[in-house]
Nucleic acid binder design. Sequence first.
DNA 1: TTGCAATTAATGTAATTACATTTAATTTTG
DNA 2: CAAAATTAAATGTAATTACATTAATTGCAA
Lengths: 154, 154
Amino acid sequence: MGISEDLKQTKFNSLTSKAVVNIIFTGNWMMQQTHELLKPYGLTPQQYNVLRILRGQQNNPITVLGITERMMDKMSNASRLVDKLLEKKLVLRRECPQDRRAVDVMILPAGLVLLEEIDQVQLAWEKKFAGISTDKMDQLNEILDEIRNVFTNN
Amino acid sequence: MGISEDLKQTKFNSLTSKAVVNIIFTGNWMMQQTHELLKPYGLTPQQYNVLRILRGQQNNPITVLGITERMMDKMSNASRLVDKLLEKKLVLRRECPQDRRAVDVMILPAGLVLLEEIDQVQLAWEKKFAGISTDKMDQLNEILDEIRNVFTNN
DNA sequence: TTGCAATTAATGTAATTACATTTAATTTTG
DNA sequence: CAAAATTAAATGTAATTACATTAATTGCAA
């Protein structure tokens, strides 16, 4: 079952066209998987992404802009996502002392606890990929990076 | 510039976690590229996807369900997307004679003309990937397919 | 120092999406 | 055949997204 069967598309103009479609399709598919995984915890993939970024700061605050720079979906409105996490009492928000335009955001213990819960299922889910060799995963990461770089240096 | 730099994330738990993030990020990134490319033509990536599916039917009608099965984003509401294309007079919609629950959709000449215009820029855009070897593109397609298959046969 | 440009977040809004429900037609089952 | 179940599409809706604009603050240059 390859991308051709998944989309019932018999022919592609080129290997590149096929790859473009495959990347978008697999990205959506992966996001959907994540979405399903998160549903029981009441988080959207974007909220989860923000929460993990906050955890990654190890008790240091980060601004809304800093969050945006680290998000997988750069178009998301980090300001409103933080609002949602605030409502759920998973994060803390306060004016940044160094720059009063900016806002510092930090994860709360409740957020860390929730993430640890999700870590368990996430880990179990990732085990399904165990059959794919390290080499392949490496190759995949490299090729995807290379593809994006074609444009950053154009 | 790899995914680590793009997201300012120094460490990943595993190569698999990194690949999951990389796939979602590159998928979003690719979609964004497509979006930019389509803006001058007044089409969203989803509308464009539908239009190309219709062209792929070579003058045969296809139902809304058939469109959904072929779409990259399975969650899109094909019914409303067809509405939009109808507004733009790019497609034709009529009751399916064999099954009156279903609706046949076909691309109109205006739709084909628009797609041909977009083909040009799409092709020019894809040229940027020319530096990436055929082998790599093949590998990429195979690995992405393999990743999705891990779940279809779970 | 003052005024202008740039930066940071927040907000308004129209469009889109996710998800459930509805409507209509077809198929299956008793 | 009639009733029930299933299928296809459309629609209602609340939430989210895309995009532009605004408000507040900072940095810089004259």
